[in-house]
Amino acid sequence: MHIRKHIKKKDMRYSRYFKSMIWIISLIFIIFILSPILRILSLVSISEIFTQVLTPENISSIEITLYAAAISTLIVLFFGFPLAYLLSRFNFPGKKILDAIVEIPIMIPHSVVGIGLLFVFAESEPGGILFNYFGISFGYNLIAVIFAYVFVSGTYAIKTMEEAIKALPPRLEIVARTLGASQFQVMFRIVIPRIARSILTGGILSWARAISEVGAILIVAPYIIPGYESIAGVDVYNQFEVTGLPGAVGISALLIVISLLIFIVLKIIQGQENIFFVPRERK
């Protein structure tokens, strides 16, 4: 153990040349990802944030975005958990097809998603007629935003939870049942607590994916009646269209800062020793 640690520290396994290559190629990619973000942030001074960026319009568009993404994440987790359980525990014909369907949203261009949702839920379409019956309308409202978010972000949560449930030995559930627990008790007392961390991770991924969605929203809810506000991503696009690059900087910077802050907070929660009083998994 001692010696192995030592070797690891010295990294004797790799030549300097090989290591440099790996580092350089990796860093090019990291710089590519970081540069637009850092460039935007560099264009906004702290005083500007308070005077020009934190305008009521910007704040309300951020609010709508975070709110819709949060609701969509809850919906995704509610429907996604049983689906993940189905895919990881049950055997049935067509399971592979179902598994593939869950991944479809990743492949489809998101403007197409918007069009598709309208064709199902617009007022004259079957889903829309059903919704109308309950007094719900679709399009230019928060419901449309949430639907689009659920569609594009669900895959991430479902796949994350599916992998976690697959990694949980099925015998654990049988043992819990022999001890007297019903199937639902096993679900709530064993399975969900044991994969709590993955549920949180899946939730974070879905939430982040939802916030970044613009394509589908431009089709189903480019602005939201009654206030004619837009979700933040669309707002950036609109301001770019109207005033060019300088106009879009403020809202972009705000969006980045808020997303990163929430992301960091969630990552810290996720890294905690206990999540929902559930200790970290150990091997």
Binding site: L172, T178, E281
Partner: peptide, 15 residues
Amino acid sequence: RKVGYVTQDYSLFDH
């Protein structure tokens, strides 16, 4: 069933 089951890997509830 009233059966006590101890599996090879113990199946303890780690949480």
